[in-house]
Amino acid sequence: MTMRSIVPRENESLVVGGVIGDVLDPFTSSISIRVTYSNHREVINGLELKPSHVASPPRVDVGGDDLRTFFTLIMVDPDAPNPSNPSMREYLHWLVTDIPATTGPSFEGRQMVDAAEWRRQNFNTRDFAMLSNLGPPVAALFFNCQRQSGSGGRRI
């Protein structure tokens, strides 16, 4: 059985992009997530963005209908410093906890986890989720970002 055959159809782009496999195990999306950067460009899976587009924190809207449910948002680069030499795989850009379901404008003001507690280089999303008792993922997005001096990727 191939991974593609056990991944829900809506997550096929996450398999093609390497998110499912490299960062996450197969899962079924159960909430909506919308990420928009200051250039008003909404992130869709596989979108190519320039470093200048992602310099500021994005606006993140998380769906859900139970205000007693809180989410954790993790942004990693699974092929840092570049796809041909991913020696820092996964590089942790940021991690935000305690995001309530049905958020309004953004995650700003939420609990930003001190990255010093976790190694930024060689961070492991699966291990973090297991150690923090987070359960399986509920949503995922990714984009690609080309560095000015070469190629590199960043995924959410």
Rank of each mutant, 00 (worst) to 15 (best):
I99Q: 07
V113H: 05
D66V: 07
L141R: 08
V54R: 01
M130V: 14
G63E: 06
V60Q: 04
D61H: 12
S106L: 02
D127L: 14
L14M: 09
S84I: 06
R9V: 13
N122E: 08
I74A: 07
S29H: 03
V76G: 04
W94P: 00
T125G: 00
P8R: 10
V138L: 07
F107T: 14
T28R: 13
R126H: 14
A116I: 05
L134D: 02
R147S: 06
T102K: 15
N11A: 04
S30V: 14
G21Q: 09
G104P: 11
G17S: 15
I33E: 02
R41S: 13
N85A: 10
S84Y: 02
T36K: 13
A115M: 08
S5L: 14
F70Q: 02
G135L: 11
Q148W: 06
S29F: 03
R68W: 12
V96L: 10
H93W: 14
N122T: 08
N82T: 02
H93D: 12
Q148A: 10
G18C: 06
I44T: 15
S56A: 01
V62Y: 06
R68L: 13
I44L: 04
A101E: 10
N85I: 01
H40K: 15
M112F: 15
H93F: 10
P86D: 05
S149H: 05
H40D: 15
V96Q: 06
H93C: 10
P81F: 05
A129K: 09
V16P: 05
L141M: 04
G64W: 03
T125P: 00
V7Y: 03
E108N: 04
N11D: 14
V23P: 03
I44G: 09
T36M: 11
H93L: 09
A129G: 08
A129D: 02
P78Q: 02
G18L: 12
L131N: 15
S30D: 07
I99Y: 07
T97I: 04
D61A: 10
V16L: 15
D127W: 02
R120I: 00
H53P: 00
G109I: 07
A101G: 13
N144L: 12
N45M: 00
P81L: 01
Y91I: 01
E108T: 05
N144Q: 09
S149R: 03
M112N: 13
N11F: 10
Q111W: 08
S149D: 11
R110N: 11
F128V: 05
M88E: 10
P105F: 07
T36W: 03
Q146V: 11
V113S: 03
P100W: 11
D98H: 03
E108G: 02
G104Q: 15
S52V: 07
E108V: 12
F128D: 00
H93T: 12
I33S: 01
T28Q: 10
T103A: 12
G21W: 05
P100G: 14
N11K: 06
R147N: 00
Q148D: 12
F143K: 05
R126G: 09
T102W: 08
G104D: 15
